[in-house]
Simulated assay, not measured.
Amino acid sequence: MSRGVEDETTVNDSYSVTVPAAVRRAADIEAGDKLRWRVDEDGTLSIEIVKQRYGAFSELEPVNIGETTNAAEDHDFVAGDH
């Protein structure tokens, strides 16, 4: 995150907060990202950005197992079921 960006927001009645635009831009937070909240024993609050990963498997090479498979059709297949 870029240094020097500071802003504040208010916790609403449903305990939701809005991440200020300047903070979103500086931290490169996008829709779908998650914020992991942590409170240390001394009361320090830290927030970790967990980036939403698109195409996590796109760089994997297929493995030839000697038979034709179709993941879209076979995704519920359980070993031993035929």
Rank of each mutant, 00 (worst) to 15 (best):
A56N: 04
V78A: 13
S58V: 08
S14K: 13
S14Y: 13
E67A: 13
F57H: 12
N12S: 08
E48A: 13
F77M: 04
V23E: 03
F57I: 09
A22P: 05
R25S: 13
G43W: 03
R38I: 03
A79C: 05
W37F: 15
E41V: 04
E59T: 10
L60P: 04
A31H: 00
V78K: 09
V39H: 03
Y15I: 09
S14M: 11
R3S: 14
D76V: 06
A79W: 10
K34Y: 02
P20H: 11
K51H: 12
E73Q: 15
V5M: 04
G43M: 01
V78W: 04
A56M: 09
G32P: 04
A26P: 01
G32H: 10
V17E: 01
A71P: 14
D76M: 08
R53W: 10
G80T: 02
T44D: 05
A26E: 06
E30W: 00
G43P: 04
T10N: 08
D28N: 12
T18L: 11
N70P: 00
Y15A: 14
V5L: 09
E59Q: 15
S46T: 15
P62T: 13
G55M: 05
G32K: 01
V19P: 00
S46I: 07
E6W: 14
N70T: 09
V63L: 05
I47C: 14
E8A: 10
L60H: 12
A72Y: 11
I65W: 03
D76H: 11
P20Q: 07
V78M: 03
N64Q: 07
A56P: 01
I47D: 02
I49A: 05
D7Q: 10
D42V: 05
W37C: 00
W37K: 07
I49F: 07
G66Y: 05
T68C: 03
Y54C: 00
I29A: 05
P62W: 02
E6M: 11
D40K: 09
R36K: 15
T69N: 06
E48M: 13
G4I: 08
K34L: 12
R25Y: 02
E59G: 14
A21C: 04
Y54T: 12
D40C: 07
A26S: 11
R36T: 04
E48Q: 14
D40T: 15
E48R: 15
R24T: 12
I65R: 05
A21Q: 11
